[in-house]
Amino acid sequence: MTRVTQQTARIVFFLSAAVSAMAAALVFGFLLVFGFPLIGGGEFFSLLARPWSPGQGLYGFLPMITGTAAISFLSIVFALPLSLGTVCFMGGLGPARISRLVDGFVRFMTGIPTVIYGFLGIFLLVPVVRTLFTSAGSGMCILSASLMLSLLVSPTMIIFFKDGFDSVDVRYIQAADALGADSVQRLIYVILPEAWPGIVTGIIMGLGRAMGDTLIALMIAGNAVHVPGSILDSARTLTSHIALVSASDYDSLAFKSIFACGLTLYVLNAFAVIAVRRLGRKRGPVR
């Protein structure tokens, strides 16, 4: 490549990176500015700890914070073994032909609109949960939402995990094979440790998707505004809350509070990403 094209490419890529970083910063700024009436009054932190009861002038979203945390965390708990298992199957445990089919299916799943998962949840999953657990009431609860959400985020996680698996140096795999490792040993001792950064990225992307998803929780978590006491309780997430309030309202204080709600979601997501990165930092093998 000539110097000029190299230089141009560098500038173009720098600009793209700058624009996306700026977009994230702008969103944050936008939320800060619009949420200012609540934040400026020093009320922001009390909002985090208060219940939601507009009739009494209470606009706290502690219930939604716990709802989001519970549903997204639980969905990752369900999705992680499912995704890791699928990737291990594709990464050498399963026959090559079936692995290719599974791979195609997973990629197809990423394209299914969220509302379809929501529908499936209402008609298939919710009745099952209702029948199995009497205390789950209508069946619209944290458990139903996080189970469905785990199906939604798994393909994303699988794709990132698989990238991690594919990036493992083929010489390590060959060395392990030639030394007499069977396919499970190769996976545990060589591939998984090397693919670890990809696994961490996959968990972050999955968690981001789970926290940001609106429709599934809106459709099948029940949307009750109280701090849930068990996974069979109905709950409302921050995202569903924003959707519900902004759909019915425009100018009230309740409406203004949802900017603070968005800000909370933003910060919560950032914390989750940092936490997963810290937990996932590679400590073991010397290089």
Binding site: R171, Y172, Q174, A175, A178, L179, G180, A181, D182, P285
Partner: peptide, 18 residues
């Protein structure tokens, strides 16, 4: 695996594990 313990192999480029 047993075969590969009886028949070892060394490659063109050294391939120690990380």
């Amino acid at each position: 695996p047993d075969l590969r313990r009886k028949v070892g192999m060394v490659f063109q480029t050294p391939n120690p594990l990380p």
